[in-house]
Simulated scan of single mutants.
Amino acid sequence: MSKRLKQLTKNADKNFNQMIIGVLIVAIGIFLWADKNYFFWPPQLRLLMNSEWSDIVFICLGICLLFTALTGNRSRKFQSILLILASAAVAMLLAEQVWHVLGAHKVEMIMAVILDAGLLTLLIRCAYKN
């Protein structure tokens, strides 16, 4: 059992950036699941933007990224697909938040925009190194 734990620790250390990304994406998914009124503008798209499906996608992507990082990224192709999907999801979230800041003048969301831009940068770096 100790050998498996050492291997998991070694994999987590080797894929630390991917572990951080996975945790952050799971946290975003949980937050969006809990707050069903996070997106409000434009009113016509409110239901679509606050859909539970997007929350589920974020949580599943984050868990998959964590799992592949802990198992040592055995399949580079699967890891690449996960990183691309996660980048697309975070980019869409970033676009929605920028839309709120610029269109609805919700300046309070600027911190979320900055943090999501940082997460997207980390995702792109991780995909590039893959």
Rank of each mutant, 00 (worst) to 15 (best):
S2F: 02
K3Q: 14
R4Q: 15
K6G: 06
T9W: 07
K10Y: 06
K14G: 05
F16D: 08
N17D: 13
M19A: 04
G22M: 01
G22S: 00
V23E: 05
V23P: 04
L24E: 03
L24A: 10
L24R: 00
L24C: 09
I25R: 02
V26N: 08
G29K: 03
F31C: 03
F31T: 06
W33H: 04
A34G: 01
A34H: 07
D35T: 04
N37C: 00
N37I: 00
Y38Q: 01
P42Q: 05
P42A: 05
Q44D: 11
L45R: 08
R46G: 00
L48K: 11
S51Q: 02
E52H: 01
D55R: 02
I56P: 00
V57L: 09
C60R: 01
C60A: 15
L61E: 04
G62M: 06
I63E: 02
L65P: 02
L65W: 03
L66E: 04
T68K: 08
A69E: 06
L70K: 05
T71M: 14
G72D: 08
N73F: 00
R76Q: 13
K77V: 11
Q79I: 01
I81N: 04
I84M: 13
A86C: 10
S87T: 12
S87K: 07
A88V: 14
A88M: 09
A88D: 04
A89Y: 03
A91G: 10
A91P: 03
V98W: 13
W99I: 11
W99M: 15
H100Q: 15
G103H: 10
G103D: 09
A104H: 12
A104N: 15
K106H: 15
E108K: 07
A112V: 09
L115H: 07
A117L: 14
G118D: 09
L122K: 08
L122V: 09
L122F: 06
I124M: 11
R125F: 13
C126N: 14
A127H: 10
Y128Q: 14
K129I: 12
